[in-house]
Design a protein around this nucleic acid. Structure first.
Lengths: 217, 217
DNA sequence: TGTGATAATTATCGATCGATAAATAAATCA
DNA sequence: TGATTTATTTATCGATCGATAATTATCACA
């Protein structure tokens, strides 16, 4: 090693391909386990990969370790920091912000891989959903409520109330369930995603506004 | 057999207890598989039942047959015919009807057994969800839209439009997702079920009314 | 071209799966 | 009570599971 050559471009170290291979296995494992569930066998997965089963154990010590990596790849660093700025950009109406946010957000999560893995994780009790739910509540739902109050020229409450949080969850859940119908139940939907989002946001703004006004008199 | 006795009350045939046992196994299998998924082993289930594994095969030819019976028990005859009358009872306001309907409806489906089995079935592609989705659309969502139009003194459309159906799905999905959070993700909710339903219905009526009026000008 | 390192394969382990056969316990009835 | 049926158990099957060991193919480099 350490042989100096006149050639300027360094050779790509062999190690690199090993890391790439690992990455590729994780990527395809996400697709495979999303489709067949985590109880699917390692032999079937190896065939899906186009190799043999013992090869997997050169890259991951156990099947569980591979699955952990799948979760990491799909859920880690999901949150785009631009989304926070988007939700609070008061040069636009809240309606515009919400529609834009939910379009970008669902572009990232509304696919069969993300949604199916998420529900598998929820049913298995994997420690993925609960932190994610907290993230949704803290970075999306609380913010939506606060921004709504601010746009109504009312003082935003220091802490978002229970009914307000559940109201925001109706919006979030209604939109999310559109993806469940498509990618888990595999039934056709009546409009495309963007139309559904615009509709859901409009209904929320009018509906929540009405409920809130009635509550405050 | 055929022995005549002076006693008036006929003896309970021995067969009966076998049928009861079958019923009881199915009932407990629903609980068990809802909790651990359908890939859980028959030995673990037998231990859960308090018996031994081969006994199951005297009542069900295969594990798959047992699972089929679980689905039958949980999803067959779910629909209560009174619900249809409830939704169209025009002596009450639509708001009252919707709140009452969703309370009764969710009383039946919002439990860990029903919801978890339903999502397991969806992920496995079992032929349960798609007929159920059709039932929801035909008997609940279309009816809600129609009743809404009638209460607004507008002529109800002969067929419910795509955007209207998706609007009703926002309500249904928003309510349903409350149950998913509770019984699948196992996270705390902020209000009880009845408060959430009243809130969701109020938001839907105001929100959908506003969207519809704007669409029609 | 030959040699050492490493990736990928074949062969195989013990454990567990659904399912069956044989043995036993319990209940029924003359 | 004794014989017969039926419910339940013990013992075990072949298949498949995750995981490991031994073997073979591949490739960089002197």
């Amino acid at each position: 090693m350490g042989q100096a050559e006149g050639n300027v471009t360094p050779r790509i170290p062999k190690r690199r391909s090993v890391t790439d291979r690992r990455q590729q296995i994780v990527e395809q494992a996400a697709e495979f386990f999303a489709r067949y569930g985590f109880d699917a066998g390692t032999r079937d997965f190896a065939r899906y990969l186009g190799t043999t089963q013992p090869l997997l154990y050169r890259y991951f010590p156990t099947k569980e370790a591979l699955i952990r990596e799948v979760y990491r790849a799909v859920y880690l660093d999901l949150w785009d920091e631009n989304w926070a700025a988007l939700l609070t950009d008061r040069t636009k109406t809240l309606r515009e912000r919400l529609i834009e946010f939910y379009r970008r957000y669902t572009d990232k999560i509304m696919n069969s891989r993300w949604m199916r893995l998420y529900l598998y994780a929820g049913l298995k009790g994997v420690e993925i959903n609960q932190p994610y739910i907290r993230l949704v509540e803290e970075r999306i739902l609380s913010r939506i409520i606060t921004e709504f109050w601010l746009e109504q020229d009312r003082q935003a409450p220091e802490t978002v109330g229970a009914e307000d949080m559940e109201a925001a969850w109706i919006l979030q859940g209604g939109i999310f369930y559109f993806g469940v119908r498509r990618f888990v139940y595999d039934v056709p939907t009546y409009t495309d995603k963007d139309a559904m989002i615009a509709n859901a946001v409009d209904m929320f703004l009018a509906g929540y506004g009405d409920v809130m006004r009635r509550r405050l008199g």
